[in-house]
Design a protein around this nucleic acid. Structure first.
Length: 816
DNA sequence: TAAAATGCGATTTTT
DNA sequence: TCGCATTTTA
């Protein structure tokens, strides 16, 4: 078998990179056309790996350099902070430019910036705080409780989806037509939630967008101002925009206006990579944009600089099966490269063992671990792979865990900080009123909530309304908040946080907790994060209100206003553009924490194999990619099969997965998988039928059933303890395997339950083996029961589902 | 008030 | 199966 990685040369694929003397050097014709497109609406269909970010940043640089626009006239919108940061970084390497003057950021970041500048017009308190997803759910939960509704029937999380969905459709409670009881009540909750948010001075993510949109919609002067200001608007990942985001965009650049007035909107996206319909993304916005803006300039970036030919052939062929496409075919000059390797395994366990062995071999062949990605459709699949990696002692990193600002201890600390800024933030109040414990129990809190409710005041304001010992304890907490506010007055951000960690008792609590070391460390990390935010990170990009007009002459290059007392300027305090009121660094930091949840945990720095869902792999690329669990029901996922839109999105997901690979791509599936405590028998994904044979290399014989041929031999190899290496031809025994304690993989990979079932023979049929049915086609036998006339079989036919069949009637033939 | 017991759900996720 | 959130119990 010639699958040994060192057999192959891993030269870098052809790249655009070359000495650059001018911005436009080394752009291909399509890229050039996009970068230098005239100042009118344009739609760029940017294929995976086609240099999209380069085009976006180069265009901005070119516009600035050629004097077509000043920094203040540029708006560039992205979905993630990461993308926004990258754009800024790359832009500054191309051109010395005042980035602060431009509006580059995420939709939500820019909305925040907008609302900070116009908080009064938007009807918000100046120091409004932002609720993250979990804050939102708990706020809604409080509303549901206050309304004395059944939480079983009105599940807070679902209600939060309802509300976010309504907001993303631009609907306020009064706009929703509700006919049934359920919806009517949800609308009532929505209304009560809005009132509560207004009372507490907080906004959720969707509110940032909707509030900005409404303000522009209802305020002609403001709208005209911004329309005149932004000459060039660039939108990244346009296929991911939702209804509200598109409507928001049109406020800044109305279709009729654009073009005629020299306003230009450059929408960049890839309909084939639209994988977020489930959270409201409307691919249709691309077609709508083309129509509504009468786009004359549709540019396709189809030249791929990432992957070799076979990988692109696979991607192209697969995605061509989708009916709803704008149409695009990736091409490369890099040559075919290696074939796409396909592996079949007996079990998820075996799949995991195989892939880590293969990954280790790649690593020995000279590929950094961080350049190897293991992708899966759903998070639950990471478990087996993780444990295999763990047992083998291979460093790995799983994406998608808790992020820094979402950690309990960090959120607790932030809650105290928020109370300093705004004591009426009931979410924060409830979060920490009794943490660390200060004898304030559930009864006391209920009394307090009743008092607050009946007077329409915040919990903080109602503390005095609770009598007796309980009231005294509450007063003690309110005092703590007040005194901490006084103590920290005028301190810099680091000192403020240090003080809060002490006076709140958080530090002490974790010092005394035997498992508190890590949490203490994170609290220390919070101080560092704040420090970094104030000093380097370009303080206040989020919270600082920028002048409504282009940067005024009295403004320093970093956005701070001149003429402030030195001490104030040093604390990086920024006055509001309209009112001159001061926004504290603390408020800015809290905003930052809400809008940017930080990295998810993991031993950063270590060279580790990357594990993630296909969704989180979007936008990334790796030398080698494993797409695992390619089984019917998993990928495509069973929940997506009810309609063709769902299946097409799954296919796009697969397309995204394939196009992550630069040099080597593995596809794997297995016959047995533990899922939710049950053994499932899956058949291979239909996507295999949609890939070109010529680009594939089946490393296990195609259509081999479990227990036969290769698989049998494979198992024998396992049980002899010789592992995979004899099968896949990996040369030497890996170092990590020299430790017998860690060599858990030597155990036969077939679960005991499986072995037992395999023995359960029935007329040539075997559980776990493939069967053929004249109507349903290929399937996998899951269960055999009964004898003679009563004999029945349960078969998983993948796309036809799991079926019980009477063997006396159904014609089932075993497949070998 | 904290530990133990029980119940529930289980694609995908950024802001 | 397993992680979590909520409820029960000492």
């Amino acid at each position: 078998m010639n699958s040994h990685p060192s057999d192959d040369l891993f030269g870098a694929p052809a790249a655009v990179a070359a000495p650059q003397t001018g911005l436009l050097k080394n752009l291909n014709p399509e890229q050039y056309a996009a970068v230098t497109a005239p100042a009118e609406p344009a739609l760029i269909l940017a294929g995976a790996g086609s240099g999209k970010t380069r085009v976006l940043t180069t265009r901005i640089a070119w516009l600035l350099q050629t004097g077509q626009v000043s920094p203040g006239g540029v708006m560039a919108v992205t979905f993630t902070n990461k993308a926004a940061k990258e754009m800024i970084t790359r832009l500054t390497t191309m051109l010395p430019v005042n980035v602060r003057g431009m509006w580059i950021g995420t939709f939500h970041g820019l909305c925040n910036r907008f609302l900070r500048a116009h908080w009064k017009l938007a009807g918000l308190p100046q120091g409004f705080q932002i609720l993250d997803a979990s804050d939102t759910v708990s706020a809604i939960k409080r509303v549901i409780k206050a309304m004395k509704l059944d939480e079983e029937r009105y599940v807070p999380k679902q209600v939060s989806w309802f509300i976010a969905g309504a907001k993303e459709d631009g609907q306020r409670p009064g706009d929703i037509e509700a006919w049934d009881e359920q919806t009517k009540t949800q609308v009532a909750i929505y209304q009560a939630y809005e009132d509560q948010c207004a009372r507490e001075g907080v906004v959720d993510f969707a509110e940032l967008m909707l509030r900005s949109y409404e303000l522009l919609r209802d305020n002609l002067a403001l709208r005209q101002h911004y329309q005149q200001r932004f000459r060039h608007i660039l939108v990244d990942e346009f296929q991911d925009t939702n209804k509200l985001q598109y409507a928001w965009l049109k406020m800044f650049a109305p279709p009729g206006n654009a073009g005629g007035s020299g306003q230009s909107v450059l929408a960049v996206g890839d309909d084939d990579q639209s994988i977020y319909a489930f959270r409201g993304a409307r691919v249709g916005n691309m077609a709508d944009f083309e129509r509504e803006y009468r786009v004359r300039n549709v540019i396709k970036l189809e030249q791929n600089y990432r992957s070799f030919g076979n990988i692109l052939d696979a991607a192209n062929e697969l995605i061509s099966r989708n009916s709803k496409r704008l149409g695009k075919t990736l091409r490369t000059e890099a040559g075919p490269g290696e074939p796409v390797r396909v592996y079949e395994q007996a079990s998820d366990f075996a799949e995991a063992q195989w892939l880590i062995e293969e990954a280790q071999a790649l690593h020995r062949g000279g590929i950094a671990r961080a350049e190897i990605a293991v992708l899966y459709r759903s998070n639950a699949q990471s478990r087996v792979i993780e444990s295999a990696l763990f047992n083998a002692g291979i460093p790995y990193r799983v994406y998608g865990g808790l992020r820094f600002f979402e950690r309990k201890e960090v959120k607790d600390a932030l809650a105290y900080l928020r109370l300093i800024e705004n004591p009426h933030d009931d979410t924060s109040f409830l979060r920490v009123v009794n943490f660390p414990a200060r004898g304030i129990g559930a009864r006391t809190i209920e009394l307090l909530q009743d008092a607050a409710r009946s007077s329409g005041r915040s919990l903080y304001q109602s503390v005095g309304a609770v009598a007796g010992a309980a009231g005294a304890k509450l007063a003690g907490f309110a005092n703590l908040v007040d005194s901490t506010r006084n103590l920290t007055q005028g301190l810099n951000l680091r000192k403020i946080i240090e003080e809060v960690l002490e006076t709140s008792g958080l530090n002490e609590f974790y010092r005394n907790d035997k498992d508190g070391a890590e949490r203490l460390e994170n609290l220390g990390e919070l101080i560092n994060a704040a420090e970094a935010f104030v000093t380097q990170e370009g303080f206040g990009r989020d919270a600082v209100a920028l002048p409504v007009d282009e940067l005024s002459p009295g403004t320093l290059s970093d956005g701070r206003a001149e003429g402030l007392p030195a001490a104030v300027a040093q604390a990086a305090v920024t006055p509001d553009a309209e009112t001159g009121e001061i926004i504290s660094p603390l408020a800015a930091f809290l905003t930052h924490a809400a809008l940017e949840a930080g990295d998810n945990q993991a031993q950063a720095g270590q060279d580790a194999i990357q594990l993630m869902t296909v969704h989180s792999a979007k936008g990334l690329e790796f030398d080698a990619v494993f797409i695992t669990g390619l089984e019917e029901g998993l990928f495509p996922h069973e929940n997506s099969l009810s309609d063709s839109d769902g299946l097409e999105e799954e296919r796009r997901l697969m397309y995204v997965a394939i196009t992550r690979a630069r040099q080597r791509l593995y596809l794997s599936f297995c016959q047995t998988r533990m899922l939710h405590g049950q053994t499932r028998y899956n058949i291979k994904s239909r996507f295999f039928d949609e890939l070109p044979e010529s680009a594939l290399k089946w490393l296990t014989p195609k259509n081999q059933g479990f227990g036969s041929g290769y698989a049998k031999e494979y198992q024998d190899a396992w049980s002899r303890g010789s592992g995979l290496k004899s099968m896949v031809g990996a040369g030497n025994r890996p170092a990590w395997n020299s430790n017998p304690q860690k060599a858990a993989w030597v155990e036969p990979p077939v679960p005991a339950a499986m072995v037992k079932k395999v023995d359960d023979e029935h007329g040539g049929l075997r559980v776990g083996k493939g069967v053929f049915h004249t109507k349903f086609g290929e399937g996998v036998l899951v269960t055999l029961e009964g004898k003679g006339q009563d004999a029945r079989a349960q078969v998983n036919f993948g796309r036809h589902g799991l079926k019980w069949l009477a063997l006396s009637v159904a014609k089932l033939t075993p497949i070998d």
